[in-house]
Design a protein around this nucleic acid. Structure first.
Length: 553
RNA sequence: GCGCCCGUAGCUCAGGGGAUAGAGCAGAAGCCUUCUAAGCUUCUGGCCGGAGGUUCGAGUCCUCCCGGGCGCACCA
């Protein structure tokens, strides 16, 4: 997918429509692939074949006509029609020259685009209850959410990262009760952790801390008051610790929204009022329901329980309404896939509130299975023997953790092997990509020692770059902007990983086969320019993943 | 039972309706007096879960079936 050629295709399509060759409503995929075999050009498109039916002609005929509509560009050597109607594009040498100069000129900006210019996007992710430390599943969501945000930024969007704190409800009460039990235990009292309570060691530590700061005074306070205090202390401390973990993971948020605050600000009341005015609320069995079924949900949902308390869903309606009212052009929620059944309900709620559902995109991230030497590591939050994100960071480090979390499509479950992730060996894909970058840096240090500097963009003489490996590298580098765009538009960060592995593979192969620093100065300089371009793309790609691009390894 | 996701090489997975389906790992054989061997080269490996359908063309879209995961609260 090369954006310059894609522009040509778009232009040809427009012209063909204007001329009536194809119907105005035809919307073929304007996509490019890199042909698998030599002799099929640098890029290929199937657009003509896709249009064949609408145009009432066969693919080859459409292809021929499209080439006539295509603007003539000096950097395009030729367009061939092949097979059932492929358009095969062969680029002129000047194209590769320009590409190379372009990458060196743009540096860290290469690959960025402006498709999102003027568009504000919110990405909400992690949003874990402050009832315990983040586990590996949160880690994957954090990596995905943050990388999506980076991708959207790279494509010109204005992005806000947001964490929604579920600091209200039964779980928070249970948390307080659990801490209170630990606190009492600390003073030698008989105090069981409540049914379904939090067993983790972290509450024992918190209880000890509380005893040191507050003494024994909470032993004598009334149960409910003590529990409320414990809930407050625990959620505060746990949230702080969650923030620390995320910080270490390279993930930061612009906005933290609290569910409690939503209620205090009257936002939940307001949302319910709106629903009531719109006629979407009704009473039944002493509860208040919203008619989400009208908007595609399986059943209607309770917003105010019999006991008068609001449900989590009520808060969430208010929360999402608030997001819409903050004026985002696009709202992205990143959820664990175990919440997938919740999505239709939220979309329905938004429609009931008169908001377009397609503005809210929900990315579902499947679970992480933690392995060690290929054997599963057991995880269970309640039993308290889970592996936390912090444990993983301690063991494998930020770069490997982020890379592994992003290696698979989000809708596939992920096997995360701790031993593999920290192996400083050939098996570890993180190092494969980072090593390519470090290698290039090392080479540049060598060339500097020999008095050879990477040429300035305007000084590049690409004439010596005639090897097929060099053409392959240039072709691959030219795809980068489209990879970033597609990853951002489809909300699929794994594409960047696969792309970078390919770049690294081509680089390593080239490196082993040919020397960059040779006796021939002109050739060395041309190759140095190419290597700088590869380095730039590797660095930019790793940056968008939040993974370091080391200069030495 | 209903809904969503997944099923592609021995394993882990890419593959946006198009040309002869790819990569890594595992297995076999090679490559370091020269820019980092955390690397490279070559070989082996496939009824894309199954059956129908749509299409000039299906791993990709539709229907059904089988197998696995996750959901189906007046929990969050």
């Amino acid at each position: 997918m090369n954006k310059d050629v894609m522009d040509l295709l778009h232009a040809a399509l427009r012209a063909a429509k204007a001329d009536g060759l194809v119907p105005e409503q035809a919307d073929p995929p304007v996509l490019l692939e890199v042909p698998k075999r030599a002799g099929q050009g640098d890029f290929a498109s199937t657009m003509a074949m896709a249009l064949a039916k609408d145009a009432g002609k066969n693919g080859r005929e459409v292809a021929e006509q499209l080439t006539r509509y295509m603007p003539k560009e000096p950097w395009l050597e030729r367009v061939d029609i092949a097979g059932p109607g492929y358009l095969n594009f062969t680029m002129a040498p000047s194209y590769w020259h320009r590409l190379l100069a372009n990458i060196l000129e743009q540096g860290g900006a290469y690959g960025g685009s402006t498709i999102g210019a003027g568009r504000r996007v919110q990405v909400e992710f992690v949003s874990a209850n402050p009832t315990g430390p983040l586990h590996v599943g949160h880690g994957r969501i954090a990596a995905v959410g943050d990388t999506l945000a980076r991708l959207l930024e790279a494509t010109g969007h204005t992005v806000e990262r947001e964490y929604y704190i579920n600091d209200l409800g039964k779980q928070m009460i249970t948390l307080g009760q659990s801490l209170l039990a630990r606190y009492r235990q600390h003073f030698g009292r008989e105090a069981p952790i409540p049914e379904g309570g939090y067993q983790g060691e972290y509450l024992r530590e918190l209880a000890k801390e509380m005893a040191e700061n507050e003494g024994a005074r909470w032993l004598d306070e009334p149960e409910e008051e003590a529990q409320r205090y414990c809930t407050q202390i625990a959620s505060q401390r746990l949230l702080a610790s969650i923030r620390e973990d995320l910080d270490r993971f390279g993930v930061g948020f612009d906005v933290w929204t609290s569910e409690v605050a939503l209620h205090l600000d009257g936002k939940v009341e307001q949302a319910l009022k709106r629903l009531r005015e719109a006629g979407h609320l009704y009473e039944e069995e002493g509860a208040t329901w919203v008619r989400t079924m009208t908007f595609g949900d399986d059943k209607n949902r309770v917003v105010i329980r019999q006991n008068g308390q609001m449900t989590y869903f009520a808060s969430d309606l208010a929360y999402h309404l608030d997001k819409y009212e903050r004026g985002f052009d696009e709202i992205v929620d990143v959820w664990g896939a175990d919440h997938h059944g919740y999505a239709p309900r939220v979309w329905a709620g938004m429609e009931a509130l008169g908001r377009p559902r397609d503005r809210l995109k929900i990315v579902l991230v499947q679970l992480v299975a933690l392995l060690r030497h290929g054997k599963p590591v057991s995880m269970s939050t309640r039993a308290g023997e889970f592996v936390t994100l912090r444990d993983v960071l301690d063991e494998v480090g930020r770069d490997a953790a982020r890379f592994f979390f992003l290696m698979r499509r989000c809708d596939n479950a992920l096997d995360f092997d701790l031993e593999l992730a920290k192996a400083k060996s050939e098996d570890n894909p993180v190092y494969y990509v980072q090593y390519a970058h470090a290698r290039l840096c090392s080479m540049q240090r060598q060339s500097a020692d020999r008095g050879l500097a990477v040429p300035a963009p305007s000084e590049i003489d690409p004439a010596p770059l005639t090897l097929p490996e060099e053409q392959g590298l240039l072709r691959q580098l030219s795809l980068y902007p489209a990879v970033i765009e597609a990853s951002a538009q489809l909300l699929e960060p794994h594409r960047v990983i696969f792309y970078l592995q390919e770049v690294a593979g081509l680089l390593h192969a080239y490196y082993n086969k040919h020397r960059v620093l040779t006796q021939d100065r002109t050739c060395s300089l041309a190759r140095l320019a190419l290597m700088q371009a590869v380095r730039t793309v590797l660095a930019n790609g790793l940056t968008v993943l939040g993974v370091a691009a080391p200069e030495r390894m």
